[in-house]
């Protein structure tokens, strides 16, 4: 579903992604972790071309990202994204946030989009919040609306960029529960997170990044039980202690 071949990226003089090779199959749930500045957010932001790459090749659902013939808007419609800061449109209600892209990009009828929004809000557990504005919702509720907004485009891939990092502790689980259900339904997901409970529960593979490289990857059981690399062990000891 997603292929990275020899991907390199620079922010000015800063080399943020180094020779990334990565294949992600349809239906796979991949967790990406690593210290801050390791390039993990940049990695997933390349998948929908929020960030351009300077070297190498990325192919998403058969569409090569750097080919000028590829319709990037079409590609972005296939890839849903959830951000750390939610990024809901503050001047629109939860329902309007969800229906905007389906109506404008997918050219769905308003009734169809509204029905879908209702179903999705029920799915993320807040059907009663359809007419609330983001400022009237808690962080956890906002993030669930953001997930519903991304799902409304019926994407084949969902990207999560630290979806629970900006949340109060008691709201983390309500968001993770939605993500667990999504994983169990067979959605292809790439999740940048430090929620190792989530990784153990539903992920098929964990990728550990440091300084722009993929240091280690493996199935969650092996990854946690006996990490091969010293760098991984240090990192895990720091986040698993508490």
């Amino acid at each position: 579903m997603i292929q990275f071949r020899g991907v390199n990226k620079w922010f000015g003089p800063l080399h943020v992604l180094k020779d990334i090779d990565l294949h992600i199959a349809a239906g796979e749930v991949v967790v990406v972790c690593g210290p801050s500045g390791s390039g993990k957010s940049t990695l997933i932001r390349c998948i929908n071309k929020l960030e351009p790459i300077q070297k190498g090749e990325i192919v998403v659902d058969g569409m090569p990202l750097n080919d000028p013939a590829t319709d990037i808007t079409k590609l972005r419609a296939e890839v849903g994204m959830v951000f750390q800061q939610f990024n809901l449109y503050p001047h629109m209600t939860a329902r309007q946030n969800i229906t905007l892209a389906p109506v404008k990009v997918r050219k769905q009828s308003r009734e169809e989009a509204e029905r879908l929004a209702r179903d999705l809000l029920a799915k993320v557990g807040i059907p009663e919040k359809a007419d609330d504005y983001p400022a009237q919702l808690s962080g956890g509720q906002q993030q669930r609306v953001a997930i519903a907004r991304a799902l409304a485009m019926q994407p084949k891939i969902m990207l999560f960029d630290e979806p629970t990092s900006a949340l109060d502790p008691e709201m983390i689980n309500e968001v993770l529960d939605v993500m667990v259900n999504l994983a169990r339904e067979g959605m292809t997901m790439i999740v940048v997170t430090h929620e190792m409970g989530f990784a153990k529960k539903v992920s098929h593979r964990i990728i550990f990044m440091d300084e722009g490289r993929i240091v280690e990857e493996g199935a969650p059981h092996a990854f946690f039980a006996n990490p091969k690399e010293e760098r991984t062990r240090t990192f895990l000891s720091k986040i698993l202690v508490h």
């Binding site: 929908n48 929020l50 808007t73 079409k74 972005r76 419609a77 890839v79 849903g80 994204m81 951000f83 800061q85 990024n87 809901l88 449109y89 503050p90 001047h91 905007l100 892209a101 404008k104 990009v105 907004r149 991304a150 485009m153």
Partner: peptide
């Protein structure tokens, strides 16, 4: 905020749609 541009872009909106529906109203 930049996040608004990113959310609209990731949602597949064109530059014009993003300006009209997301950026200019705010």
């Amino acid at each position: 905020p930049r996040g608004q541009v990113e959310a609209a872009t990731a949602g597949g909106l064109s530059y014009r749609q993003m300006m009209v529906h997301v950026i200019l109203p705010q």
